[in-house]
Amino acid sequence: MLGKTAGGLYWMFRYLERAENTARLIEAGFRIALTRSDDAEAEWKSVIVTLASNAKYKTKHESYDSTQVVDFLLRDETNSGSVLSMVKAARNNARLTRTALTSEVWYAINDTWMALKDLLEDPIPETELPAVLATIRQQSALVRGALVGTMLRNDMYHFCRLGTALERMDNTARIIDVKYYALLPSPAFVGSKMDNVQWETLLRSVSAHRAFRWAVDDDFAAPAIAKFLILDGRMPRSLAFCAGEITKNLGHLADNYGERLGSNDQADALQALFKGRDIGSIFEEGLHQFVSRVIADTSQLAGQIERDYRFTG
């Protein structure tokens, strides 16, 4: 397959994943704004910082007002990270790689774009926000479902899955770095009971608050949450899970092509960061240092994948 096509598929699924993650963050922020209006401003700011959009945001707005933040993140076409911009970018990548996609996947992404273009045409009133966010997540699930249900398990499929896994890895790492970290005033607080609502919000940002209760504990203890988000291989947004997905899909590519490349080794090294680790040792190393390293290594791996498979030249 063409290198450009591989890159197009990979980026299509990165954009889609990022759009979905943005919707989750907005959902969590909106909940705070509704239930604890005093904390809303800080929460919205952390959402913007998590999405690495603060510089851009500050050129347009002075305060972190709900309406402004939501509009900026959902439908501002001058913001390349808005849901609308990213769904458009994902669909453009789908047009670019159309010969590689099944018609079901094409219909799913094109329907998504048409639906969201209509839905986001005008500013979203608060009363409609939950429904809009739900639609974004549903549409994203639809595309993923079409992919999993109809694509051959060949190199094309693996590039799509790689895009999803890398983007999700980066997203979860950023949430931990910005939001979790902000909740820890000092390392001494590790282990003590924290403000339950804020922890719950953190888990909601990755749609895992119920999963956490079922799988781990009904008590929102900080180390347990960190362990869940970083090391729990059952949790499909944890760093360990995403690292596993990346390694697995790169492994399939190496099998298909009969050749192991630099990205295979880098992915193995990334996955090794989580193997056999316990959360205590991560806190000892320093959570921020650890997560920063994960973010940097993931970004380096992404660059290596682009070169190994000749996405651009």
């Binding site: 397959m1 063409l2 290198g3 450009k4 096509t5 591989a6 047009r95 159309r98 010969t99 190199d155 092509y257 498979y309 000749r310 030249g313």
Partner: peptide, 29 residues
Amino acid sequence: SFLADQMGVELVEGHDLKVVDGHIAMRTT
């Protein structure tokens, strides 16, 4: 894209192609 898809051949742009040893070649993975 429709014709490429229906024929089962690659759809390329200029930047996917270059001259390699006197032939035109496309950049694959």
